[in-house]
Design a binder for these strands. Structure first.
Lengths: 143, 143
DNA sequence: TTGCTTGCAAATGATTTGCACTGCT
DNA sequence: AGCAGTGCAAATCATTTGCAAGCAA
């Protein structure tokens, strides 16, 4: 049981939830993925959990703040571990095959961006919680 | 008939499509909206076009390069005029009410960002086409 | 007339939910 | 025993599509 598991367990307990085998399998699958994964990919990574269980347990994990659900371009939903577990990052999104990969922007850029966005948001009376940045293009395989 | 209509007409013709009243109504609705709008909002903005016509015509307009389809946070799809028609911009996204508003980032920031992202993309063997930046938070009304 | 467009209703596909059952505690 | 978690199948919701009728070139 790794450090990550400890944190996950703590958050589930805080939400009055158990850390069941199915949930462990989901967290393990998300951890080894290099980016947000779809339900189908999760089914491949785990031993064929039924879809409904995947959806239901991902909802529980999301409510506990362990998992984040995002949506790619068109397609369906994708899931990843929460940013405070794996660090702030962004995504490379392949227009050809729909793959999504994690990518980290240099802190200097990130900082400048945050400052600029904060000003912009304020100008619109907007309370900024966070930003989302995707790099859209074509991945190495689809070139 | 405005300048925008001329461009739209030209692109539709280039796609072997007509600029019908329904399509004009859609373009007009998208033009007066201050950001990407949902199908429901479009239904409110136009004189109750049937959903299927809205979807079908938006597809035609998207194929002609006039309209871009994006997807908000969870919810459903949203549509806006193509960036080359209304200019490069980003979105303010309200977590509370789901509203999406256009926002423009200062060119200086935009330029630095582009350079940094281009380097990052190259490092992953990725061909960068464009980027997408959303400011997520709470809008003035939902504060 | 010929073919694109329309509008309804039915089909699709991702996601959610009802319900009976299993397995912890 | 009591309650949360499971898995199937049915329901839901946005979106797409088939098809018959309308309209424009």
């Amino acid at each position: 049981m790794s450090e990550l598991d400890d944190v996950v367990l703590a958050r589930l307990v805080a939400s009055d939830q158990r850390y069941t085998p199915a949930r462990r399998a989901l967290v393990a699958a998300l951890r080894c993925a290099g980016g947000p994964v779809s339900i189908q990919e999760i089914q491949g990574l785990t031993d064929d959990l039924p879809q409904s269980s995947i959806y239901r347990n991902l909802s529980v994990l999301e409510a506990a703040g362990v998992v984040t659900r995002i949506v790619g371009n068109y397609e369906f939903g994708r899931f990843e571990l929460a940013e405070d577990l794996i660090g702030h990052h962004h995504h490379l999104l392949c227009e050809e095959c729909g793959a999504m990969l994690d990518v980290t922007v240099p802190p200097a850029i990130e900082r400048q961006l945050d400052e600029a966005l904060e000003k912009l948001a304020k100008r619109s009376g907007f309370t900024l919680h966070h930003h989302r940045l995707d790099l859209v293009g074509r991945c190495a395989q689809c070139k």
